[in-house]
C-alpha cells in the first residue's frame, strides 16, 4: 500500500527545502541566543525593574503559541500603515524576516531560563572562592561560571534547538517554501499526503539526529572532568 519509490521521490524533491529550513533555524537560534543571554542577565540582575521586564517578556513569549506570535508579527504588524513608512518595513515586508524574528523572540524566552538555570547551578562557594582570589567581572564569568553553566545547560538547550528545527515548519503558514511548505505544495499536486509527510518527517528526523549528535559530542568534550579515567576501565576494576 505504501509506495516506497514515491516516498523516495518526494524525499529528494523536499530536500531542496532544507537550505531554507537550516537558514531559518540558524538565524533564529543564533540571534535568539544573543537575546537570551541579555534576558538571563536581566533575570539575574539585582536591580528589580530589569528582572521584572525580563520576567514579563518571558511570561508572554512562553505563554502564547508560536503560531499566534508569527501571525501577529506577519499579518498583525502589516495592518499599521504608519509602520509601512518606517525603515523596519523592508524587513517586515519579507515573510523570511518575520519568520526569523518570531522564531528568535520565542526561543530567546525559553533559552533565557535555561541559561539562568545553568548559571544558578554553579555552587556559590566556588564563586566566593574565586572572588577571594581577586577574580571579578568577566574573569569570574570566563573562568568559573561560564564553563560550568554551559555544561549544565547543554541537555536543556539541545532540546530547545531541536524544538526550533521543528518550529521552522510553521514558516510555511506565511508562504515560506521550506521543507513543510514544499510538502504542502507537493501534496496539492499529487493528493498523496501520507507518503509525502513520511518523507518530510524523515528529513526532520535526520536533521535532528545530526543536531542531537553534535550536542552529544559537545557535551562529551565539556565533561572531561566527569568521565572515568580510561586506565581504570581498561584494568577492569568495576567489572
Amino acid at each position: 500500500m505504501i509506495d516506497l519509490p514515491f516516498i523516495y521521490d518526494a524525499f529528494v524533491q523536499l530536500c531542496s527545502g532544507i537550505p531554507l529550513t537550516l537558514q531559518l533555524m540558524a538565524v533564529s537560534v543564533a540571534s535568539g541566543a544573543v537575546l537570551a543571554i541579555a534576558l538571563a542577565a536581566m533575570r539575574l540582575s539585582s536591580w528589580p525593574p530589569l528582572d521584572l521586564l525580563a520576567r514579563i517578556y518571558i511570561f508572554i513569549f512562553r505563554g502564547t503559541p508560536l503560531l499566534v506570535q508569527l501571525y501577529l508579527i506577519y499579518y498583525g504588524l502589516s495592518q499599521f500603515p504608519e509602520l509601512r513608512k518606517t525603515f523596519l518595513w523592508p524587513f517586515l515586508r519579507e515573510a523570511y524576516w518575520c519568520a526569523a524574528l518570531a522564531l528568535a523572540l520565542n526561543t530567546a524566552a525559553y533559552s533565557a531560563e535555561i541559561i539562568r538555570g545553568g548559571v544558578l547551578s554553579v555552587p556559590a562557594g566556588q564563586i566566593e572562592a574565586a572572588r577571594a582570589y581577586g577574580m571579578s567581572g568577566l574573569t569570574l564569568i570566563r573562568r568559573i561560571i561560564a564553563p560550568q553553566a554551559l555544561r549544565q545547560m547543554l541537555p536543556g538547550y539541545s532540546n530547545e534547538v531541536i524544538l526550533m528545527a521543528k518550529s521552522t515548519a510553521l514558516a510555511s503558514t506565511i508562504t515560506m517554501m521550506e521543507v513543510t511548505g514544499l510538502a504542502a505544495k507537493l501534496i496539492s499536486a499529487t493528493y498523496r499526503p501520507v507518503e509525502i509527510f513520511i518523507a518530510a518527517g524523515a528529513i526532520y528526523l535526520l536533521l535532528n539526529f545530526i543536531v542531537s549528535r553534535l550536542f552529544k559530542l559537545f557535551e562529551y568534550r565539556l565533561s572531561a572532568a566527569q568521565r572515568q579515567p580510561i586506565y581504570r576501565r581498561a584494568a577492569g576494576e568495576n567489572a
Binding site: Y75, S78, Q79, A95, T175, G181, A184, K185
Partner: peptide, 12 residues
C-alpha cells in the same frame, strides 16, 4: 507566493 486562504493573500 502560496497562501492558505484567499483572505490571507488579500491582507498582503
Amino acid at each position: 507566493r502560496e497562501y492558505k486562504t484567499t483572505e490571507e493573500h488579500n491582507f498582503d
